[in-house]
Amino acid sequence: MLIPSLPSKGFREAFIDALNVWLALPDSSLQTIKLISQKLHTCSLMLDDIEDSSPLRRGKPATHTVFGPASTINSANWILIDVMGDVQELQTPQCMDIVIEELRNLFVGQSFDLYWTQQGECPTEEEYLEMVSQKTGGLFNLLARLMKQCTQSLHLRAISLDFVSLLGQYFQIRDDYMNLIDDVYTEGKGFCEDLDEGKFSFPIVHAWHCTPPDLVMRGIIREGKASGSLSVPHKKMILSHLHEAGSMEYTLQAMKKLQIRINNDLEHVEKEAGCENWVMRLLVHKLFV
């Protein structure tokens, strides 16, 4: 019910610690950025669950199912405003510009995701990846840019962190994939919960644009969107069609290609920073499927 009290993967805080191996922020700035990360993540989950009509969050009732949508929206908005006070504590005017810019990107990405779901219009793979870069990648980019702005080293502030955007893409594609196959996800949010929401995940996008089109899968997804949920047999049928279309294997291969690019970019940053970062390498290794 109260999101900060629920079990969490803790990935974003670990990500901040890993970046700090290079950037070496003052402890006060580091702790403030961790607080900003926690608050923004909590706020986004509260709003996402309402927008996606999700009844569960990490195996517990979603906040809006306990306190109602109105109170949940009001609380999420309060958290968003409260974050701005935390950003001011960083005492760097550019930090506020970074937060505003990345939050705009995040909300634009979410708007595309919602539009496609509500209208039943499947994006292209390129459109999907652009949306992910804005939505899921938005918070990663925000944190990385804040940390670069707060580092006391002008050299480190100038290094490229292109792998952060790739990490955001990988994070979302992995989430799409695991939602369809992982028992832990089933326990936390229900069996193939993305299918109930009518969301166009990465495997669905691939299968949707197959030639010839999979009319059975399309029909089930559209009927599920109209009724608000899908039965387990219908979900299993979609899973079967995703495997037959090669969409699950295609998703795995897409993740492997991203893994190679992320590792290559990490090596490049290590050379620029003059410091190997085994904390970051371990973090991404644990994330990789």
Results as ranks from 00 to 15, higher is better:
residue 215 L to V: 04
residue 161 L to P: 04
residue 63 T to A: 13
residue 66 V to K: 15
residue 110 Q to N: 01
residue 252 L to E: 14
residue 196 D to P: 02
residue 44 S to F: 03
residue 155 H to S: 12
residue 178 M to T: 10
residue 251 T to R: 08
residue 120 G to D: 03
residue 108 V to C: 08
residue 284 V to W: 08
residue 112 F to Q: 12
residue 170 Y to W: 09
residue 134 Q to T: 04
residue 213 P to Y: 05
residue 177 Y to W: 11
residue 67 F to M: 08
residue 258 L to W: 04
residue 54 S to G: 05
residue 229 S to C: 09
residue 120 G to V: 01
residue 194 D to H: 01
residue 141 N to K: 14
residue 247 S to C: 00
residue 171 F to G: 00
residue 286 K to T: 14
residue 51 E to A: 10
residue 288 F to T: 04
residue 22 W to D: 02
residue 90 L to G: 02
residue 19 L to N: 13
residue 225 K to L: 09
residue 208 W to C: 11
residue 269 V to M: 02
residue 287 L to Y: 14
residue 195 L to Q: 12
residue 109 G to D: 03
residue 98 I to N: 09
residue 41 H to K: 03
residue 279 V to T: 06
residue 113 D to H: 05
residue 178 M to K: 13
residue 104 R to H: 13
residue 75 S to W: 11
residue 213 P to M: 08
residue 110 Q to D: 02
residue 158 A to D: 07
residue 77 N to I: 15
residue 264 N to R: 12
residue 73 I to A: 03
residue 205 V to K: 04
residue 185 Y to W: 05
residue 49 D to A: 13
residue 222 R to A: 10
residue 274 G to W: 03
residue 175 D to K: 10
residue 215 L to A: 04
residue 92 T to C: 15
residue 103 L to S: 08
residue 169 Q to A: 08
residue 111 S to N: 11
residue 43 C to G: 06
residue 283 L to I: 00
residue 203 P to A: 01
residue 191 F to C: 09
residue 88 Q to G: 12
residue 103 L to V: 04
residue 211 T to E: 14
